[in-house]
């Protein structure tokens, strides 16, 4: 049984009849141009947007699951997050336990370690760099230990070292019988880390499958409007605009 499946998921003017499945142990990459509907799809799956069509979470209709219970299964890290107050890193990560109504220190510490932010767990968020903050937001959602983890462009503001580190975290999280969907712009990293890819274009899902099935010259140049060079045989694989 799929961890999450969507059937004809539609959000007015933004998403057209998307049907996909996310399985346990899988890292699914969501790719597509700006405005293709990646964030909309993630928000709809997390129940943050009213959407037509069906979402099924572990065989149950998502609408029938109470919000806090759904939040325990599906955790989302939205793209633009900021903290209104000068909270400590630890306190922010602890907020991730809210769906459970506890402050489980082992889960919090585990998330802090996973995200590689142990060194500044007691610092205030406004004293951190953009890249450090991005990892704090990731730790926040990891602390809830959701079955399905949805992350919206987690590596956009990171240097290459931490881009790899964050993708490794997502990959290893998926390998613990969780499902992970990551919206990502870097196609080379998508090819390198994701088990399957889903390509969105103007709100429609135009392809879903293994990286070699989705990352083709024809599909990408139509979706992005630029010709691309693709070399999936290389290690690591490379996908670049020409």
């Amino acid at each position: 049984m799929a961890l999450i499946s969507t059937d004809n998921l539609t959000v007015e003017q933004r998403l057209k009849a998307v049907s996909l499945e996310l399985h346990r142990g899988e890292l699914l990459g969501l790719i597509g141009a700006n405005g293709a509907g990646k964030s909309t799809l993630l928000h709809a799956i997390a129940g943050l947007l009213p959407a037509a069509g069906d979402i099924t979470i572990e065989g149950r209709a998502a609408d029938s699951i109470p919000p806090h219970e759904r939040a325990r299964v599906v955790g989302i890290q939205p793209q633009a997050v900021s903290s209104a107050w000068s909270l400590t890193v630890h306190d922010i990560v602890a907020l991730g336990r809210m769906p459970w109504g506890d402050e489980d220190e082992t889960a919090i510490e585990r998330a802090i370690e996973r995200a590689g932010i142990v060194a500044f767990r007691d610092r205030n968020i406004d004293h951190l760099s953009g890249g450090e903050r991005a990892r704090v937001w990731l730790a926040r959602v990891l602390a809830g230990e959701p079955e399905a983890l949805l992350v919206d462009e987690p590596i956009a503001s990171l240097d290459i070292h931490y881009q790899l580190a964050v993708m490794e975290v997502l990959k290893s999280y998926s390998r613990e019988q969780h499902g992970v969907i990551v919206a990502i712009h870097d196609l080379s990293l998508a090819a390198r880390f994701c088990d399957r890819l889903c390509l969105l274009d103007k709100g429609e899902m135009v392809a879903i499958g293994t990286p070699s099935e989705v990352l083709t010259e024809a599909l990408l140049s139509t979706a992005y409007g630029v010709p691309v060079d693709i070399d999936l045989e290389r290690n690591p694989p490379v996908v670049l605009p020409r």
């Binding site: 219970e69 997050v81 900021s82 907020l95 991730g96 809210m98 809830g144």
Partner: peptide, 15 residues
């Protein structure tokens, strides 16, 4: 507490 991180995050945590 949840609103510290914005409405979207608060909503996604079941609030």
């Amino acid at each position: 507490a949840a609103l510290s991180l914005g409405e979207l995050v608060a909503e996604s945590m079941g609030q």
